[in-house]
Simulated scan of single mutants.
Amino acid sequence: MKSRLNLKPGQRGTKHLVEKYGAALLYVRYRYDEERGVRLKTVENPT
């Protein structure tokens, strides 16, 4: 699985997640599963 896009809080596409996680949000990573042909979103936070 390859990581295609990493977004930091405040960047375009993270507004809803910043509201949900606040200052705890480190980054949002979009990974692409070539086998299934789908994009998966993972949210990284220390808690």
Results as ranks from 00 to 15, higher is better:
M1F: 03
K2V: 13
K2E: 13
K2Q: 14
K2P: 01
S3D: 13
S3T: 15
R4W: 03
R4H: 07
R4G: 12
N6P: 00
N6T: 10
L7M: 06
L7Q: 04
K8N: 14
K8L: 15
K8M: 15
P9E: 00
P9T: 11
G10C: 01
G10E: 05
G10Y: 03
G10L: 08
Q11A: 14
Q11C: 08
R12K: 12
G13H: 09
G13D: 14
G13F: 07
G13Q: 04
T14Q: 02
T14S: 06
T14C: 08
K15D: 12
K15H: 07
K15A: 14
H16C: 08
H16W: 10
H16G: 12
L17K: 04
L17W: 06
V18H: 03
V18G: 02
V18Y: 03
V18W: 01
V18E: 05
V18L: 06
E19A: 15
E19F: 14
K20I: 10
Y21V: 13
Y21E: 06
Y21R: 07
Y21G: 03
G22S: 13
G22K: 02
A23G: 10
A24C: 12
A24N: 06
A24S: 08
A24W: 10
L25A: 02
L25G: 00
L26H: 01
L26I: 11
Y27D: 07
Y27F: 06
Y27S: 06
V28H: 01
R29T: 06
R29M: 04
R29K: 09
Y30N: 00
Y30G: 00
Y30D: 03
R31M: 02
R31V: 03
R31L: 04
R31E: 07
R31P: 00
R31Y: 00
Y32V: 06
Y32E: 07
Y32I: 05
D33Y: 00
D33S: 05
D33E: 10
E34W: 02
E34V: 00
E35C: 02
E35R: 04
E35L: 07
E35V: 09
R36I: 04
R36Q: 05
G37I: 00
G37L: 04
V38W: 06
V38S: 08
V38G: 09
R39V: 15
L40P: 01
L40H: 07
K41I: 10
T42R: 07
T42V: 15
V43R: 05
V43N: 05
E44P: 01
E44I: 11
N45W: 13
N45F: 14
N45K: 09
N45G: 08
N45P: 04
P46G: 07
P46M: 11
T47E: 09
T47D: 10
T47I: 13
T47S: 12
T47M: 13
T47L: 11
T47W: 05
